[in-house]
Design a protein around this nucleic acid. Structure first.
Lengths: 139, 139
DNA sequence: CGTTTACTTTACGTTTACGTAAAGAGGAAG
DNA sequence: CTTCCTCTTTACGTAAACGTAAAGTAAACG
């Protein structure tokens, strides 16, 4: 099969570019590398990030938003990187998926609950404001 | 209006009861008190938790699952406790609600995305397992 | 009455995820 | 060439959220 060439597929990024795009500090990005979550190339001493690195950074940050520690995200990266050959590893992977799913579904439930509460609270506040305005105009 | 008496409304809890129910350590619960998020009564030296405290603990833990720092949860408690009298405070409250809503909606989006990815990954793994089994039986 | 048992306070230790300061390297611009 | 700018490494510092050990109290049990 001939290699499919996609234009711009070899685009690279500097650390500050990524930092600005994702609104994190370069320090944070270097820290993720320290922890083994990113492995950018080098041009001399400078780090060069590929699209793959960019995707990983995005995944790291999403994991963070969901409250997952970096160590967890790292394990998932490693699992994805494996060949999925060994059956035992696959079973382990499935178990990990199940774990995550449970956490996320709890989280989804929490999010829905809080959003509803925010609706209620907002309505109450707006109602209080309305009542105040009305009494002020009739005073 | 006569006070409505609800049986069992004055039920109280010990710290270990709450710890077991919510699967946290007593140390954690005392820490939340240190930080001003809980204010249990005392019977002598011992802490006595009311239903209100229990509800608060539940809210604290939900906040945690959603990745909110204790300081944030504390602010929300304080806002809820206020009279909602001052208009400026109400506006501030509305702003806080808006903030939270934005975070939660991002989070909801993240959760959905990851759940879909987990579906995809699980299917891939199961398919790989199936393929292996098939080739083994025809070998 | 002695001693478990459950709770308490005090206080130092730990982990995670960076912040921040110091000092150097190497292109680029004047 | 000097100066500036960006990136680099090294390393110590920090905030949040408890863990954990030490030492004390108080009710209850045998």
């Amino acid at each position: 099969m001939p290699t499919v060439r996609i234009p711009g597929m070899d685009k690279t990024f500097t650390i500050t570019e990524l930092a600005k795009e994702f609104n994190v500090t370069p320090r944070a990005i270097r820290f993720y590398e320290d922890q083994g979550l990113l492995t950018p190339g080098r041009e001399g001493r400078r780090r060069v990030y590929t699209r793959r690195d960019r995707v990983r950074l995005k995944l790291i940050l999403r994991g963070k938003r969901l409250g997952f520690p970096l160590s967890e995200t790292k394990v998932l990266f490693e699992l994805y990187d494996q060949e999925l050959g060994e059956q035992a590893q696959m079973q382990y992977f499935l178990a990990k998926i199940k774990e995550r799913r449970a956490i996320l579904e709890q989280q989804r439930h929490d999010v829905e609950a809080v959003l509803h509460e925010l609706d209620t609270a907002e309505r109450a506040v707006r109602e209080a404001l309305r009542a105040k305005k009305a009494s002020a105009s009739t005073a």
